[in-house]
């Protein structure tokens, strides 16, 4: 029973990571851009949701606001800064988006103050439900799994079935060609970047409501999201989904199992500390192992 619950936890943690990684990998796939400030857009989503929810009393309006605010911030940043970085190498992109993190973090603190914000789940999503087999499980975590699956499906439909998707795929394959075909590349890129930002904002609002809405909340998430997309293959949505689930399962089950394993051959309190230390390194070990076998990630096209 505990194991079943932990597997479910691994699944929902993976979906949570997928929500964060989807926008990142989309932007990389289309524009070849590393965006370290993705975590900041996640933070903006959470802050927008918390603020609007506090004003209006409605979580749903807050959720809409988080999408709008993150997409707007994304579009703005794309037009002001990111646009100039496409022809540059990854190094300049890393530095510029690192600088954006500083600006966003301190800017947010300047506007919203020093203290974490309050953001609560709406009553419709809170509480626990009883699953078949008698397992009590928080409704919200099931919602995250559903939203993650919906986003994955939505992105797949978008890319394979819509006009925008055709252009995105064409842009991935050959930039000059779609320009020659009369597609406004600049606008396409702004739209894709805003879409990626909106996904980050959505993740921020959803995850923020069961975590802490505070400055710097995006940074640990950012690193994890990078691990996810590197494992999955940068630019691949399918890779991000598989990578996220792998990381989620590895991390959750590692934390649940490893300290117990260590306790078999060392003293209990030592086993707890060193077991958790190893568990916290596990996803990075997983990443190194995947890259040893497949340097371009599981579903990566370009190395």
């Amino acid at each position: 029973m505990l194991l079943a619950e932990q597997v479910l936890n691994g699944l929902q943690y993976g979906m949570m990571l997928f929500l964060m990684a989807a926008g990142l990998t989309l932007v990389f796939g289309v524009m070849g851009l590393i965006n370290l400030a993705h975590g900041s857009l996640y933070m903006i989503g959470a802050f927008a949701c918390a603020t609007v929810a506090a004003w209006t009393g409605s979580f749903w309006l807050g959720l809409a606001a988080s999408l709008a605010a993150a997409a707007a911030a994304g579009a703005l940043v794309e037009m002001a800064v990111i646009r100039r970085l496409y022809p540059r190498d990854h190094l300049d992109q890393v530095l510029a988006t690192f600088a954006l993190i500083l600006v966003f973090s301190e800017g947010t603190r300047w506007i919203f103050g020093d203290f974490p914000l309050y953001l609560k789940l709406p009553p419709a999503l809170s509480g626990a439900v009883t699953l078949p087999g008698g397992l009590q499980y928080p409704l919200f975590r099931l919602v995250i799994i559903a939203v993650g699956a919906a986003v994955a499906l939505g992105l797949w439909l978008l890319i394979t079935r819509t006009r925008l998707g055709i252009r995105i795929r064409a842009g991935e394959a050959d930039r000059e060609m779609i320009g020659a075909l009369g597609v406004d590349i600049a606008r396409l890129y702004t739209i894709v970047f805003a879409l990626g930002a909106a996904l980050a904002g959505l993740a921020g609002a959803l995850v923020g409501s069961i975590q802490s809405v505070q400055v710097g909340m995006g940074e640990p998430v950012l690193i994890l999201a990078f691990v996810v997309i590197v494992i999955g293959g940068i630019g691949s949505i399918k890779g991000a989904l598989v990578g996220a689930l792998l990381v989620g399962m590895t991390d959750t089950l590692g934390k649940a199992v490893i300290p117990g394993l260590f306790a078999r051959f060392m003293e209990a309190s030592d086993a707890n500390t060193s077991g958790s230390a190893v568990a916290s390194m596990l996803i990075y070990i997983l990443m190194a192992a995947v890259l040893l076998v497949r340097p371009q990630g599981l579903f990566g096209a370009r190395a």
């Binding site: 029973m1 505990l2 932990q6 949570m16 975590q211 959750t252 649940a256 958790s276």
Partner: peptide, 21 residues
């Protein structure tokens, strides 16, 4: 049970499951 979490950890589903059990 004595459980150590990771510094900066933000998701506690695994620990809450352990608490429940």
């Amino acid at each position: 049970a004595e459980v150590y979490t990771q510094v900066g950890q933000t998701d506690f589903a695994a620990e809450i499951a352990q608490i429940r059990a």
